[in-house]
């Protein structure tokens, strides 16, 4: 577990460094994820290795890790206060628009790609 965690933290730290160095607008851990993906593609670890177990353990409980930030929201709900209607309705409408657009465009293209791969 410790070596696995070290690999993850190492990738994150390299990611944080790259983000600062190149001034790219993504979080360090996201660059770390790309780095780990590249490493995994080069050399796939055994399914029972520490790295894989650490990854699976963290991801199984990913929801837990969002709880503290979410508690902050409860404390700051009052900032929404007077503008509740535009914010809450706007949030829901734009959330749905993003979900439906992504699903619609991706579904359409999945069909296009499939048709090209196997012309009737």
């Amino acid at each position: 577990m410790i070596p696995g965690l070290l690999v993850l933290l190492g990738c994150q730290l390299v990611g944080e460094f790259v983000v600062r160095l190149l001034d790219v607008p993504v979080p360090g851990p996201v660059v770390g994820m790309v780095l780990l993906l590249a490493l995994l593609q080069l050399h796939e670890p055994a399914k029972d290795s520490g790295l894989v177990k650490t990854c699976e353990g963290l991801l199984k409980h990913l929801q837990l890790l969002f709880v503290p930030a979410g508690v902050g929201v409860v404390q700051y709900l009052s900032v929404i206060g007077a503008s509740a209607v535009p914010l809450v309705v706007g949030l829901f409408v734009s959330w749905f628009a993003a979900l439906a657009t992504t699903a619609g465009v991706a579904l359409l293209l999945v069909k296009v790609v499939r048709r090209r791969a196997s012309p009737a």
Binding site: L8, C11, P29, G32, T54, C55, E56
Partner: peptide, 14 residues
């Protein structure tokens, strides 16, 4: 607990 979000995001590579 929130600190673990970093390594957990990296773990999405798996």
């Amino acid at each position: 607990i929130a600190l673990l979000l970093g390594p957990a995001t990296v773990a999405l590579a798996w």
